[in-house]
């Protein structure tokens, strides 16, 4: 099997994108999931629905709104230009921003159920031992929810790797910047380079299977810690 330099570049770019997105979503998604798991506010429902939107929206819809919103006439575009960052479409960081939206539910939802399954009790016990809420979060909730963190991160990473429609809409297919593996495969197919498409597709297939296998086989029993 032979992968060309541009294939390897696309794979490397994909890994870089997925890693950065997973890292950002760990920081952004954890407080959202924590809040959703514990709040009794009436707007828990609406916020939960907004978080889940990328699950049902076609990537073309998301990509189209991002293209308009981040463009020179969009609100995000105005903001990034005012901040001196420039415009986000056709850039690596534009893909990062788009993927953070697109993969948000894959981080928040597993974390939310992990937090919910902990229940009130361990945190109440921590509070009676004079642990502050923040202290209790890091010393009680996080260790108990570790399996949740693991599957949420793996799912987020894998989902970002598999992203295609949004990247196609805002990426502009720039080598080393926005041409990720899924787009590269699509290009090979369109150009009738079926052999190269097969090679890269095989890598993606093996990778995806390995990721899912990890989750299904090595997933620690969530009940064990509690």
């Amino acid at each position: 099997m032979h992968l060309s330099d541009s294939d390897l570049q696309a794979i490397w770019l994909t890994i870089r994108l997925a890693s950065i997105v997973t890292l950002i979503l760990l920081f952004v998604g954890t407080p959202i999931a924590w809040w959703l798991a514990r709040t009794k506010a009436w707007w828990k429902g609406p916020i939960g629905a907004v978080v889940a939107l990328p699950l049902v929206l076609p990537p073309s819809v998301l990509g189209f709104y991002l293209l308009l919103g981040m463009g020179p006439n969009g609100p995000v575009g105005h903001l990034t230009e005012a901040l001196g960052i420039g415009l986000l479409p056709f850039t690596f960081w534009g893909l990062v921003v788009a993927s953070v939206f697109y993969s948000l539910p894959f981080m928040v939802q597993p974390l939310q159920s992990a937090f919910e399954s902990i229940g009130e009790r361990p945190l109440e016990v921590a509070a009676t031992l004079r642990a502050s809420p923040l202290d209790a979060f890091f010393t009680v909730a996080v260790p108990l929810a570790l399996p949740g963190f693991l599957s949420a991160s793996i799912l987020t990473f894998a989902h970002t790797v598999g992203e295609f429609g949004v990247v196609l809409m805002i990426g502009g297919n720039i080598p080393g910047e926005t041409r990720v593996a899924s787009v590269q495969i699509y290009d090979h197919v369109e150009a009738l380079e079926y052999m190269q498409a097969h090679n890269l597709a095989a890598v993606m297939l093996v990778f995806s299977f390995a990721v899912l296998l990890t989750i299904y086989v090595w997933r620690p029993n969530p009940k064990r810690g509690v």
Binding site: G71, P72, F90, L168, M169, G172, E190
Partner: peptide, 20 residues
């Protein structure tokens, strides 16, 4: 400086929205 649309329609879209 080149950005590529998947087809000519998308190329038009990039230009019409002012992103390119």
């Amino acid at each position: 400086k080149l950005v590529q649309g998947e087809n000519i329609t998308q190329t038009y879209q990039f230009t019409a929205t002012g992103n390119a």
